[in-house]
Design a protein around this nucleic acid. Structure first.
Lengths: 222, 222
DNA sequence: AGTTTGCATACTACTGAGTATGTTGCAACA
DNA sequence: TGTTGCAACATACTCAGTAGTATGCAAACT
């Protein structure tokens, strides 16, 4: 097994029944610290030594599991996207009018952002990076893969939107792409300003996510 | 006059009647190229040599006008904020119901983003950087100043919102802060996906800005 | 004629990604 | 119970890129 496949291997494992329970811990710790560093200082602003210092370890440990800094970033990104995708997919399942479905999806999106700020801030950064000049072809390939997932993610919202227009719960005269980009932008922007307040309960978080979704669906007119 | 004051000096001059017309061009060229570089590759990812190469010049030219890379970034940011502030301030002037006023402001914001993508993408990046660990105290001071302007900017929207709630044109039961952050997030996110299409007319741009503002105000319910 | 402006050239000092090479502990044979 | 092998790191090093500086130099200004 190639080094850089270890984490993905682990991801597959935990989907099944077994857990090695040791290697896992170590890799997750690295990912968590990396997510925090990338969130606080950006990709270029974070050095591998920064991540290592935060881990209370040295570069050796990181390069033992990840081939490069870019690889590390992508794995954090991938994990963030996975959490988002899972949450939104689940919110889609109980069918209903498109408008309500879309709102549930938005709410799930917002809540996931709030509960995984570090990982999701990296995801947002990755979307930024997409337009940035590619470095190596290998990196470009990884980035393209992630953007393809991102595209599917956005498509889920577009589909729900169209369904809502079809069933009359959403105005038919709207530029779907623009509307979806607006809604997702509002939610993604949370990575900038939202930080969990100490002692904030999950109920409070859910309430905020709900209000955010409501605003994007219903507007503000009195 | 200190080196790093040259551009600000210039900004003040153009506010008056006179223009030297030579130094100005050179500095503006640098700012334009810097804005493009920072937008495409990020602050940390851009080297001074990159900006110089894009200028068809060398470092010497840049360091002749700017004390440091950070200084250059801040000046681009400052210019971007100035354009935003000007546009939104003007949109505020014709008074009216809060809802319409807020919508005009949002539209002006969106349009300015579209017409100054490079500069405004740097502004958005700067907001990101705010939470990032400060480097030198001097940089921290500049950044704090810019964030104070940013705060005033956001406050303009908050005020308009409250006015709308007072005059009944906006629902009174809304968390103002959350709503404003959502709206501004939707517009700021444009720096990610919007790129002017070749041959796109100002009318088309205005139409898109208008639709974006409309969505944030009126929602999507059918 | 001397000074300043507006750059270019050449150099320094340092950071930081990636690598090569230990070192240690556990585990599975033999 | 040695001992062999490998995983999981730590240590030490290389080397390319880069922010910033020192200096040169022609043209413009005074």
């Amino acid at each position: 097994m190639a080094k850089n496949e270890m984490h993905r291997e682990w991801a597959l494992k935990t989907r099944g029944q077994e857990e090695s329970g040791y290697l896992v811990e170590s890799v997750v710790e690295i990912l968590d610290c990396a997510a925090l560093c990338f969130t606080e200082m950006g990709f270029q602003g974070t050095s591998i030594d920064d991540v290592a210092r935060r881990l209370g370890a040295t570069k050796g440990r990181i390069y033992h599991y990840f081939r490069s800094k870019t690889d590390l970033f992508f794995e954090v990104h991938r994990e963030g996207m996975r959490r988002l995708m899972d949450a939104v997919s689940e919110a889609m399942s109980p069918e209903g009018a498109g408008r309500e479905k879309l709102m549930r999806m938005l709410e799930a999106h917002a809540l996931t952002m709030m509960q995984n700020i570090a990982y999701e801030a990296v995801v947002v950064q990755g979307v930024h990076m997409h337009r940035l000049g590619a470095t190596t072809p290998e990196q470009r390939a990884s980035l393209d893969e992630l953007m393809s997932i991102r595209q599917k993610f956005e498509q889920l919202f577009v589909d729900a939107f169209r369904q809502g227009q079809a069933d009359g719960s959403i105005r038919p005269d709207i530029d779907v792409s623009l509307a979806v980009k607006g809604m997702l932008g509002a939610v993604n922007w949370m990575t900038i300003w939202y930080r969990p307040r100490s002692g904030e309960s999950p109920e409070q978080q859910r309430a905020m996510a709900h209000r955010m979704a409501e605003l994007q669906i219903g507007g503000i007119s009195g």
